[in-house]
Design a protein around this nucleic acid. Structure first.
Length: 610
DNA sequence: CCCCCCCC
């Protein structure tokens, strides 16, 4: 306890609210005791994020605090307890109806100090009288933006109020409110936010009304929110806002429930500018993030409803040419460009970008590209279309992008990818895709025995790969794939192309024995599926056969026991007077556990009797 | 108070 007492920065809480110069000088990183924790509301009931209210003491004073949801992990990890000691790494001082509240954005529990009873007898924080009587959005000397940027040394990134003199714009705005804390119940507030997207001006004409509007997406350290200006506010504010710049925006301004179906932004509320809403460009354009993502993987798109809006990051696999389409509803022409994205789920997806974004697109293939605000369509299983309220960033400096780059360089570049068009539907009736069948169902239903070709999907495990005739030497010409003959003089002849080649390209023709809990099937597959299963080209495998038997055996061992989803064609075949159903693998893909879990949940639901 | 985001 004495060790803890000596570490606590006594007087820091008072300095945070009343004496920014002293705060900067003496308390770069305040250390406090957490003397109370309380969970607010019921997170499971409405899906709202859980909130924690804590009380912090520096022995001299205590202050009510809220953990921003980004700081909740210290509670979830069991680190922050009543009596713990903490470093305040990032925070914002706020006044809500005259009450002082500290919003904690970044916190670290000093675990080696353990927990103990409340030290001393801290007093409620007294606030200087002149500040107390003034509303939060009028001039309060030294009450600017207190937030520190995370993951940077504290000495550099404290945006301290002492830097903003009494005449600077920050000082005219009183306490800065976190976007995350905005609600219809917030009284007087100012946010400091970056405009991450600004729309064009749009007009509408209906029987009862007409007018114009524009909207901006606003972002700070804690969250994002959409704001719209109608008519007079549109005229007044449209030119004030520049995309990418940081502004102070102060009430009066309407905060209302967001219509989620029209927003690509993660906030229950949205703003509507009013006549007296104040908007001012910030002198300090730093310390406000540029973009905030909530990524969905390419593989998980299957589980996302059509028309949802998502963020995605992927490797740019293909860049299509510019083209023009004419809207069916408006007859207007639109410029577009199709991109193909892949990620480490082993899936690929088409992303369409529009207009200027499409025209000026010049990212190189294999770049990492992050998209915010893309609409999910079910064309081709799943495809994406970048909304005008969305954004695209090439090679963003974010962990997800670095991870993808690492994966791509290590293995993704040589991988094959599944498009969603080949996937089985995630259970449920009425899907256009063929149904997933067990091996027993494939046999019982006599798939492939009729005149028509049957298609099915089955989930199974490879238990054996036939090792002889695993591949054949094929023509080198693009798209030919015909077997070539070894001429014995070092050349290989293709009858179809009437050409000889110095070497063939080996292509897989594999026979797989695939099992599930109901039985086994022999499936045959060609080169693309063979590559995925073996993790190498048939040329590479043939090379091993010549040079390294041990490695060859290991390659087959590694490929064995993979559980995959196989999309197959079942067709009657006559071979040496015998009629037999041949099962040809069209496509195989790794199990997408999210989709699989949904499918199983649907199955379980079917057993519910109510 | 809008809410369109296009085509195959």
């Amino acid at each position: 306890m004495e060790a803890a007492r000596s570490q606590i920065t006594q007087g820091a809480l008072d300095a945070i609210f009343n004496d920014p110069e002293r705060l900067e000088r003496e308390f770069p990183v305040p250390i406090c005791q957490c003397v109370q924790i309380k969970a607010l509301g019921n997170p499971s009931a409405d899906g709202a994020p859980e909130r924690y209210r804590i009380v912090l003491s520096d022995i001299k004073n205590f202050v009510q605090s809220m953990l921003a949801t980004q700081a909740n992990h210290v509670v979830h990890e069991g680190k922050l307890k009543k009596g713990s000691f903490v470093r305040l790494k990032q925070y914002q001082a706020n006044a809500v109806k005259g009450k002082r509240i500290l919003i904690i954005l970044g916190i670290e529990v000093i675990e080696e100090l353990g927990e103990c009873e409340k030290i001393g007898d801290p007093k409620g924080l007294e606030v200087k009288e002149e500040q107390d009587v003034k509303p939060a959005n009028t001039t309060i000397a030294g009450n600017g933006f207190y937030g520190n940027k995370p993951q940077q040394p504290p000495a550099q990134d404290r945006a301290l109020p002492s830097r903003t003199g009494p005449t600077s714009s920050a000082s005219t705005h009183g306490t800065i409110y976190p976007i995350e804390g905005l609600s219809p119940y917030a009284n007087k507030w100012t946010i400091k936010a970056r405009v991450t997207n600004k729309s064009e001006i749009r007009t509408w004409h209906k029987q009862n009304s007409e007018g114009k509007l524009f909207s901006v997406n606003l972002l700070d350290e804690t969250g994002e929110i959409k704001a719209t200006g109608f008519n007079d506010q549109c005229d007044m504010l449209y030119d004030v806002f520049q995309e990418g710049s940081v502004y102070y925006i102060s009430s009066p301004c309407r905060v209302q429930l967001a219509k989620k179906q029209f927003s690509n932004i993660n906030n229950d509320y949205e703003l509507t500018f009013e006549r007296d809403t104040q908007v001012e460009k910030a002198d300090d354009q730093d310390n406000v993030p540029q973009v905030r993502y909530n990524f969905t993987t390419v593989g998980d798109l299957q589980t996302i409803d059509k028309d949802s809006t998502i963020d995605v990051v992927g490797v740019l696999k293909e860049v299509g040419e510019m083209s023009q389409i004419v809207s069916k509803s408006t007859q207007k022409p639109y410029e577009k460009r199709d991109l193909t994205l892949v990620d480490d789920t082993g899936f690929s997806v088409k992303m369409t970008i529009w207009g200027k974004t499409a025209q000026s697109f010049d990212a190189d293939p294999e770049s990492i590209v992050a998209f915010k605000g893309a609409k999910v369509s079910d064309f081709g299983g799943r495809s994406l279309s970048l909304l005008s309220s969305g954004s695209m960033t090439v090679n963003p400096d974010i962990p997800e992008a670095h991870k993808l780059k690492g994966w791509y360089d290590a293995q993704g570049r040589t991988g094959t990818f599944n498009s969603h068009s080949n996937m089985a539907s995630a259970g449920g009736a009425g899907g256009r895709q063929d149904q997933t069948k067990t091996v027993a169902q494939v046999k019982d239903e006599n798939l492939g025995m009729s005149e028509n070709t049957d298609y099915f999907t089955t989930k199974g495990t490879i238990v054996y790969i036939k090792q002889d005739n695993v591949s054949y030497p094929a023509c080198l010409n693009e798209g030919c794939n015909k077997k070539v003959t070894d001429m014995g003089d070092g050349t290989w002849r293709c009858e179809k192309c009437d050409q000889t080649h110095p070497k063939p390209e080996h292509r897989y023709i594999m026979s797989l024995n695939v099992n599930d809990h109901t039985g086994q099937l022999w499936l045959s597959c060609f080169d693309d599926v063979g590559r995925m299963i073996m993790g190498m080209t048939a040329d590479q495998l043939m090379e091993l056969r010549e040079t390294d038997q041990t490695a060859l055996e290991r390659a087959f061992e590694d490929a064995n026991c993979k559980t995959l989803v196989f999309r197959c064609r079942a067709k009657m075949d006559t071979y040496q007077d015998q009629q037999k159903v041949r099962y040809q693998v069209m496509n195989a893909s790794p199990i997408n556990y999210t989709a699989e879990a949904h499918k199983l949940a649907e199955l379980i639901k079917a057993y519910n009797v109510d």
